[in-house]
Design a protein around this nucleic acid. Structure first.
Length: 575
DNA sequence: ACCCGGTGGGGTGAAAGCTCATAAGCTTT
């Protein structure tokens, strides 16, 4: 690795190297506690508020001050800083090629199976694995059979389908990093529209010295490949992840037209151009022109273009060709919710279960975001792996929260619980204990492959529990990883509306659940909503922005979302 | 490998259920 790489290691890069080493050690069948140490350290490094680079460079500091980083991992971090890798990782990569890590992403195969496949067939790629399945060689190995071969083939198909897409937060952070680096620019495309996953990143910049801007762009330290570099545009791949980023430089007089064009969506642009044609105009990425004399009518700003087409400016989140044009025509665009409308966060975890920080730390982080309140909603006992709360701990927790609020906390803290919905739709915690809490989020975490009708009944029963106030991540999807479990969403939305249970818009970038289309369906059925981060670390509270984007994509206004209300109002709403 | 607490060593998140196969691996946050 080059010296330039060393100077640009982010905490996430250190964490990724530790994490992938842990994965390889798992395939190698090494000691579980040692593997966990690597994973703990990776999480600690990722969550560390300062840059590891800065600590390493400072002779008065030691990385061992990061809890979970001891002598061994401190040594590894220094080595990564110096040369981009460390000895243990190199050893592992000699035994198992890096493509083996990709195999871990195939559902149904874990480290043990992968090790068996590697040792029996020396196969370490997805293509090779596919071949083994098709030739029925996987079932020759112990504890593997025909069913597994089919499952693996299905997993490979869905893995390929999502390959090359990236989570919105990764794309957004990359965009912001590049814009800061360039000192100018704006993201267009699906990032600007707030889509939950994106294929590539379009950056636009106007004015200034275009050639110098593009030269500077392709030299960014995280650029791993330059795909093209012309007069007005450069394309690069960023990092090991390989996100493609296009930077276009534009004259300021056509900036609005380009922004409109590159923001899309395709469906929205088709509708907009159709409208232009009907008005004797033609719209392209350079501007809006009269057909008769080719005179440019608008081009400098998006608002100019929409206005010339007789429309108010349409927020990017609505530009999906889903009725926004008609609503704009009628002057009925929603007044979309904004980040500043949010006054609290009603779903988060602490070290009591699988979170990484204390109640006080979460409350402090909420305070510094300007919130009035939070609800601490740790897991219930069905999630044993996360050390979920039983009835006694729930009751004790509720009492403790009342006392701590009295004693003074940075923000008002509501006692809550993310209560598992059991297979039969019953709550995982008895009603008496639930009654002690301010807010109960009910979530499905298990048995996600039930028949749709059975799953619907399960959710409907959960919504009948009088203590349930919020349906958490209602569809269970994990982006680029797992599809929603199937059920009758409309029936559930109707029941939620009837029982006054808010639909959660889970702002975690891995979920963004429920998605925009379902939000609109639920709103039509009379549901109200809550936007929550499901934070497991203080910094996750910052994911609220993605939840707000998703709500905006679902046409929601502040009044649709209960955590835009003040604490007292919210409590009476919940009661 | 880390942490604690004490110079040698022990403990380390915490099940439960499913699938596929017949004891073990994988998934769930």
């Amino acid at each position: 690795m080059t010296a330039t790489m060393v100077s640009t290691m982010e905490n996430t890069d250190y964490a990724r190297l530790l994490e992938e080493t842990a994965d390889l050690m798992e395939i190698a069948g090494e000691d579980g506690f040692r593997i966990r140490s690597y994973r703990t350290a990776a999480a600690a490094v990722e969550g560390f508020l300062e840059r590891v680079d800065d600590v390493l460079k400072d002779p008065t500091r030691k990385v061992t001050e990061i809890p979970g980083v001891g002598k061994g991992i401190a040594f590894a971090l220094e080595e990564i800083h110096r040369r981009g890798s460390f000895e243990r990782r190199d050893e592992m990569l000699e035994k198992y090629p890096p493509t083996a890590l990709e195999l871990l992403k195939i559902q149904g195969l874990g480290p043990k199976s992968i090790r068996a496949i590697l040792e029996a067939y020396r196969v370490s790629t997805i293509d090779g694995l596919e071949r083994l399945c098709k030739e029925h060689k996987l079932q020759l190995l112990p504890r593997m059979g025909a069913k597994l071969e089919e499952k693996v083939l299905r997993s490979i198909a869905s893995y390929r389908k999502r390959a090359g897409r990236f989570l919105l937060d990764f794309a957004t952070r990359t965009a912001e990093e590049l814009i800061t680096y360039l000192g100018a620019g704006e993201a267009a495309g699906s990032v600007r529209r707030g889509r939950e996953t994106v294929g590539d990143l379009d950056l636009l910049v106007s004015g200034g010295d275009a050639a110098a801007m593009l030269d500077h762009f392709v030299k960014h330290p995280r650029v791993s490949e330059v795909l093209g570099h012309g007069e007005n545009k450069a394309s690069v791949k960023i990092g090991v992840e390989g996100l493609q980023v296009d930077l276009r430089t534009l004259p300021s007089e056509s900036y609005g037209a380009a922004m409109q064009y590159f923001t899309g969506s395709k469906n929205h642009n088709v509708a907009l151009r159709t409208r232009a044609v009907k008005m004797g105009l033609t719209l392209n990425e350079y501007g809006l022109y009269r057909v008769s004399d080719e005179v440019c009518v608008a081009s400098a700003t998006e608002a100019d273009i929409y206005q010339a087409l007789g429309l108010p400016w349409i927020p990017p989140e609505l530009r999906e060709g889903q009725g926004e044009m008609e609503a704009a025509e009628r002057g009925e665009l929603p007044r979309l919710i904004e980040g500043s409308d949010i006054r609290g966060d009603l779903h988060m975890h602490t070290t009591e279960t699988d979170g990484r920080a204390s109640l006080e730390e979460m409350a402090e982080a909420a305070h510094s975001r300007g919130y009035e309140y939070v609800a601490i909603t740790d897991h219930s006992k069905a999630l044993a792996m996360a050390n979920g709360l039983d009835e006694a701990r729930v009751v004790a927790f509720a009492r403790q929260v009342r006392e701590r609020n009295q004693a003074g906390l940075p923000v008002r803290v509501f006692s809550g619980l993310e209560c598992d919905i059991r297979r039969d739709g019953a709550m995982d915690i008895e009603n008496d204990a639930l009654a002690e809490l301010d807010v109960v989020v009910a979530s499905v975490h298990s048995y996600m492959n039930m028949e749709p009708a059975e799953m619907t009944d399960r959710l409907l029963r959960a919504l009948e529990c009088p203590h349930v106030k919020i349906l958490g991540h209602p569809t269970g999807r994990v982006l680029l990883h797992r599809d929603s479990f199937p059920f009758d969403f409309e029936a559930v939305a109707i029941a939620a509306a009837k029982n006054g249970v808010a639909m959660e818009i889970n702002a975690s970038p891995e979920r963004l659940d429920i998605h925009a289309t379902l939000i609109r369906i639920a709103k039509a059925k009379g549901c109200r909503f809550v936007i929550s981060t499901d934070a497991h670390h203080p910094k996750h509270l910052g994911n609220m922005r993605y939840g707000v984007l998703t709500a905006r994509r679902g046409w929601l206004e502040a009044s649709d979302v209960i955590n835009t209300r003040g604490a007292a109002d919210l409590l009476s709403t919940l009661a």
